[in-house]
C-alpha cells in the first residue's frame, strides 16, 4: 500500500518541478494546483458531480448487464458441446468487429441517449467475461467432473459442486477486464455524442482549450477506474476465501 504510493507521489513532485522550472509552457502543461482548482471550480458550480455520477452510473449498469449475459452465454458455450458448436463461431465473428463500429449503428437505432451508451458498454463488458469464462469452463479438470458424476451429481448441482468453484479465478479476471473495457467504451460513447459525463467533459475541454480540465478528467477517470476495480478486489477476496 505505502510502497505503491511512491511512484504517484514522485510523479506529482516531478510534475510540480517541471511547471516551476518552466520546462514546458503552462498552456501545454497545467500546474497540479490549477488542475485542482479546475476541479473545485466545476464542483462548486455543481457540474463535476453530475458528470461523475452519470458516467459511473452508465458504467455500472452496462457492466452489470454485459457481464451477467457474458456469464450465462459462457456457461452455455463452455459446458455443452452443442452450445459451443452452435454459438462460438458467430460470437467469435462479432467479437472481431472493432467495438467502435457499433457506435453509429447504436446511435441510429437507439438515439444518442442513455440506452445506446449502456448497450455499448454492455457489449464491451460481455466479451472479456464470455471469452475467459467459457474457455475456463471447457478446461475444468474432466477427472473432477467425472468424480462428481460418480457421486450422483449432475446438471446444476454438478455445476455448483465442481465447475463454478473451479472457474472462480477466471470469472474474477474476466470481470476485471470487463470493467476496464466498460470505462473504455464509456469514454468512446461519450466522446462521440453526449451532453453529460466525463467523455463529454473531455470533448468540451478540448474545444474550449481548457487543458486543466482535460488533466482533471483524465485523472478522475483513472481514480474512478481504480476505485471500481477495488470493488472487484473485495469480491475476489470473498470468493477466494470460500473457494480458493
Amino acid at each position: 500500500m505505502l510502497v505503491g504510493a511512491i511512484v504517484p507521489i514522485a510523479l506529482l513532485v516531478a510534475w510540480q518541478l517541471i511547471v516551476m522550472l518552466h520546462l514546458i509552457p503552462a498552456y501545454r502543461l497545467p500546474s497540479p494546483l490549477s488542475v485542482l482548482n479546475a476541479g473545485v471550480d466545476l464542483s462548486n458550480r455543481g457540474l463535476l458531480g453530475i458528470d461523475v455520477a452519470i458516467s459511473t452510473q452508465r458504467v455500472l449498469i452496462g457492466f452489470t448487464i454485459g457481464s451477467t449475459v457474458g456469464l450465462i452465454v459462457a456457461a452455455v458455450v463452455g459446458l455443452s458441446g452443442f452450445g459451443s458448436r452452435l454459438l462460438s463461431p458467430t460470437l467469435g465473428a462479432i467479437r472481431a468487429v472493432p467495438s467502435l463500429a457499433w457506435v453509429p449503428l447504436l446511435g441510429l437505432y437507439l438515439g444518442i441517449n442513455e440506452d445506446s451508451k449502456v448497450v455499448l458498454i454492455a457489449i464491451g463488458a460481455f466479451f472479456p467475461v464470455y471469452t475467459t469464462v467459457s474457455g475456463a469452463l471447457r478446461h475444468v479438470n474432466p477427472q473432477l467432473v467425472e468424480a462428481g458424476r460418480a457421486y450422483g451429481f449432475g446438471g446444476l448441482r454438478l455445476l455448483r459442486l465442481v465447475q463454478l468453484p473451479a472457474v472462480v479465478p477466471s470469472v474474477i479476471s474476466g470481470l476485471r477486464l470487463a470493467l476496464a473495457q466498460s470505462w473504455l467504451f464509456l469514454v468512446a460513447g461519450e466522446l462521440l455524442g453526449a451532453s453529460l459525463g466525463l467523455g463529454y467533459l473531455l470533448v468540451d475541454s478540448q474545444q474550449t482549450g481548457r487543458i486543466d480540465r482535460l488533466f482533471l478528467t483524465i485523472i478522475l477517470l483513472g481514480v474512478l477506474g481504480k476505485a471500481t476495480d477495488a470493488l472487484i478486489g473485495l469480491l475476489e477476496r470473498y470468493l477466494l476465501k470460500r473457494w480458493g
Binding site: Q143, E146, A147, A150, G152, P165, W243, G244
Partner: peptide, 18 residues
Amino acid sequence: GVDQRCAVAFQEPRLLPW
C-alpha cells in the same frame, strides 16, 4: 445410471481442491 448402491474410488484421489 450412477447407482446409489455403488461407490467408486479412482487411481487419483480426485478431491476438490477448494
